[in-house]
Computed example of a mutant assay.
Amino acid sequence: MEERLQKLISASGLTSRRGAEDWITAGRVTVNGRVAALGDKADLSRDQVLVDGRPLPQEEDKQRTYLMLNKPRGYVSTLSDEKGRKTVAQLVSGCGCRVWPVGRLDMDSEGLLLLTDDGALTHRLIHPSHQVEKEYLVWVTGDVDRALPILSGPMELDGEPLAPAQVRRGRTSGGVSQLSIIIHQGKNRQVRRMCAQAGLTVKRLKRVREGQVTLDRALAPGAWRRLTEAELALLR
């Protein structure tokens, strides 16, 4: 199947899509011996795509990397940041290869963040059609009794309907209530915006599960480890 060159190059793990676009513009990419241009497509089953004269790494040639990070607050879920903010890439720089975040947690959120260089698994986990559950613990203030039926009922963001969330109420202490919210979409700051629509103020937000993989409680904030084979099987 034909796909844009920047997507093919990014999926190979060589660079990001933005980086691939820069390489294409610089004339470093060829398709079947012809210098490529932005917008060109290729099918790796029939076309030869070279970067600096070398073919893209093939799936069978590359050992993929899969990491679990306990993301702390104060870090953005990107590989680089034009504003100079701290990134999750800095936290996992010792893993020995270039990996990217599977989805995002906003700067003020914390908890489970998966990182990999496997494009196919990334697509499976973040595309809404696969309906991969994501569970968050959310500490809120406000009228929780009023908010619960709103959060678990029909809601919209950006003019689009949301799939119903699963919401459970936990303990309340000092006026702060803990909620468990399970969604399988990934709109920008979705859980925070849902809570705001329901009249709640989010004090803390922590992702604790993605699919059937849960955050390792032994991981301190900012620490990471490689996924086990059992965890990979669950994600796949």
Rank of each mutant, 00 (worst) to 15 (best):
G103L: 08
S80A: 13
K206D: 01
L125C: 06
P164Y: 10
Q58P: 08
L157D: 11
D145I: 01
R171I: 08
K62P: 03
L114N: 10
P164Q: 15
Q58V: 13
G119I: 00
G211C: 12
W224Y: 15
S16C: 06
L113Q: 02
A26S: 14
K83M: 00
G211Q: 06
D145W: 02
A220G: 14
L162F: 04
L162I: 02
R73C: 11
V138W: 00
Q6H: 15
Q6N: 14
L38S: 06
V51Y: 03
K206P: 02
E210A: 03
K7H: 07
E82G: 04
T228V: 07
W224Q: 00
R236G: 14
L44R: 09
L112C: 03
L125P: 05
G96N: 00
G103A: 09
Q48N: 15
V140A: 05
G211F: 06
R209C: 10
S129I: 02
P154Y: 04
Q58K: 15
D40Y: 05
K83P: 07
G222Y: 01
R171D: 11
G19S: 03
Q185V: 04
R34N: 12
E82L: 05
I24R: 08
S93Q: 14
H127E: 05
L234G: 00
M68E: 00
E156G: 04
L105R: 05
S177P: 08
K206M: 12
L148A: 02
V29P: 04
R85D: 08
N188W: 03
D43Q: 12
L14I: 15
V31Q: 14
G222C: 04
L157A: 11
D40C: 02
L14R: 02
L67V: 11
T116E: 07
V29F: 03
P154F: 07
P221C: 08
V49H: 03
S45D: 14
G170Y: 14
A89G: 06
Q6I: 10
N188V: 02
R204V: 02
G222V: 00
D108Y: 04
M1I: 09
S93V: 07
N32R: 07
W224I: 06
L50Y: 05
Y136M: 04
L219I: 08
R28A: 00
G119A: 04
R17C: 05
W100N: 01
L232R: 13
E3L: 09
P221S: 05
W139Q: 07
E231P: 12
R85Q: 13
R168F: 05
L151N: 02
T228C: 09
T122V: 15
L114P: 08
R85S: 09
P57L: 08
R98D: 02
R104Y: 14
A165F: 07
R168G: 10
A120V: 15
Q63D: 14
L151C: 01
P55V: 12
Q185T: 15
G175V: 10
G53C: 09
